[in-house]
Write a protein that binds this DNA or RNA. Structure first.
Lengths: 166, 166
DNA sequence: TATTGTTATACTCTATAACTATA
DNA sequence: TATAGTTATAGAGTATAACAATA
């Protein structure tokens, strides 16, 4: 017989999947990403890593490849492969950084800038159509809460490992 | 020269990736899922689809395979493959539903129930360690906001397609 | 020695279609 | 004809290691 829980204690013994935050977040994020990808994938022949690369180069101008990786939360392998495809499509240029010849500096071509100019309003419109659910106050609150979870997971990247290891 | 935006209008022309909700949600969800997976993957030799299947069977008792799919947001192919591995590990049983011989009824074995009992407190603890960021009021607010986004995306699954197609 | 980037490999996830058996 | 489940296949995402060039 399960014992009734006191109100100030959390039930750690049972779990209903569609009330479980990690599952809900993952499901929600996947739905959102699929909705956004529907806008840029077929129409512009862009994969997600390519779209991310174009997004940061479009808003920041030329950047070294490793900074693209940091800004897009992609490792250097994914960046490298995205750049290979973007180069083939004539959407970016790459040149060696003369001050450190290990570094590659990436920049959008006019073609890449066109893609950026075309895609951004479309994906922003998708974001708007989703966030239209919220009032301005709710948006701000959601933004804050998401930001604090991001920070927390950054500060304790081993939140699970601590539980896993001992 | 970019024109200054009036305060009640949204800038659809530019996009900074780490302020863009779909990207932030995806990044956050991935981090959370990786943290949770760190708890069940190596220690219990569970993939995400297997863990989800065990989670719903553990909280609901025996279920037809198609309901497992609905509850876990997985299609029948993923369920089928998860079940194949769970069967091989002796963690579930499957039998044909006598009232509709197309249906497969799944149930945790004692071994599967043991896994469920062992894993749930661990993954709940991860959830707790993340949500510890919030006060009770903030949790309730976050829960509500997430729920409304879920509902919205359910109601307008073609939110992006509408923009994509015309 | 450490860092930047490339290439190779493998494993998982996702989506789709083809197939079976039942209804 | 439609539904439940299985199998097969291909594309994308993810993680890792090995490597070359440079610092």
């Amino acid at each position: 017989m399960p014992q009734p829980l006191s109100e100030d204690r959390v039930d750690l013994e049972s779990l209903v999947l569609d009330r479980y935050l990690p599952f809900r977040l993952s499901h929600l994020a996947n739905r959102v990403m699929r909705t956004v990808a529907g806008v840029y994938a077929q129409r512009f022949q862009l994969s997600a890593p390519e779209w991310r690369t174009i997004a940061v180069l479009g808003s920041n101008g030329e950047m070294p490849a490793n900074m693209v990786g940091e800004s897009t939360a992609m490792d250097k392998v994914r960046v490298s492969r995205a750049v290979t495809r973007l180069l083939a499509a004539g959407r970016v240029t790459r040149r060696v950084d003369p001050t450190d010849r290990r570094r590659i500096i990436l920049q959008l071509t006019p073609v890449g800038l066109d893609v950026h100019r075309s895609v951004v309003p479309l994906v922003r419109a998708v974001e708007e159509s989703i966030l239209a659910e919220f009032t301005a106050e709710e948006r701000a609150m959601f933004d804050t809460l998401i930001g604090r979870l991001e920070d927390r997971l950054k500060r304790i990247p081993a939140a699970g490992a601590q539980i896993l290891d001992p």
